[in-house]
Design a protein around this nucleic acid. Sequence first.
DNA 1: GTATGTGCAAAACCTTTGCTATAAA
DNA 2: TTTATAGCAAAGGTTTTGCACATAC
Lengths: 165, 165
Amino acid sequence: MLLQMVRTKEGTLKKATGSRGVTLGGAQGLLRAMGKRITEQRLLLLEILQESKGHLDVEELYSRAKRRDPHINLATVYRTRNLLKESGLLEPTFLTQDSRREQFESKPEVEHYHFACLRCGKVIEFESPLVKQLEQEAKRLFAIEITRGRFVLEGYCKDCRGNLE
Amino acid sequence: MLLQMVRTKEGTLKKATGSRGVTLGGAQGLLRAMGKRITEQRLLLLEILQESKGHLDVEELYSRAKRRDPHINLATVYRTRNLLKESGLLEPTFLTQDSRREQFESKPEVEHYHFACLRCGKVIEFESPLVKQLEQEAKRLFAIEITRGRFVLEGYCKDCRGNLE
DNA sequence: GTATGTGCAAAACCTTTGCTATAAA
DNA sequence: TTTATAGCAAAGGTTTTGCACATAC
């Protein structure tokens, strides 16, 4: 017998409560635990990732880092990004259909989902228990194990929907 | 949160009824209408895309094409893929978190969603009205216009979930 | 002091593009 | 015959890698 969630007066979906950074705040400890070193460059990159809400591609991360440390090298940015990715602190989010570059965000405490505006690039994060419910259903129906679910919407935000030339 | 759990007999999610190919079947007409030419290479690539359920990246498409026409060129594959993408017959699907390459599938008649196995690459397509419901909620809550929604699960399929070394 | 990380440059990838010959209409 | 397209090779863009020096531990 399956359980189904039914929507009542107010929706199941809400804006994500953007508490983040706790994860990245613990980055130093994790790196140490992995036998990795805490370098100036890594600290800088972590700082930038923590400040920005994420959704940075490598180019953007590099350019922001360069403003504070003009000598930082692109290879270092790639290597750091890969390190954080492998250690699970950062995860790739493919936002739009035609994006060529991967974007990343620091791993959130509460799983959330995304809307990305095709015109201005604005990203809205939201949560909804229905997504987990869908995952549960899929899990049972197909006998699969799910490690990650993503739900991504693309389109035009409030400000852009009228202004399409 | 004002949610009630209700017992129902069946879930909202089901395996996608994989009718496809009608779209790609109409490709020739569309190409003609666009003033494009029907070449052997394009026919071959369309045939391959139609046979495979999709979920091919360019490399795979190229290697399959080469088996039947050893002279076909990678640039032709890219150009054809871009053409089909622009004309809306093919669309990119980012399946797994660490996939570097875009994969494509022929545009389905009924919108569906994906599960991809991280070990064997198997793809399961499914449908659920709840996804559209979520889109409606997001649309109202954020005053956005949604052009596309994707819901992608990754993990391990029935056959692979036990065999992880 | 030892081993890891950085910067730099080169290499490896993936995708696009300019050109000429070919073939579709 | 006319014009779009294929094949090829070269170029463009992104990511990775080898190596010597610097630096965290």
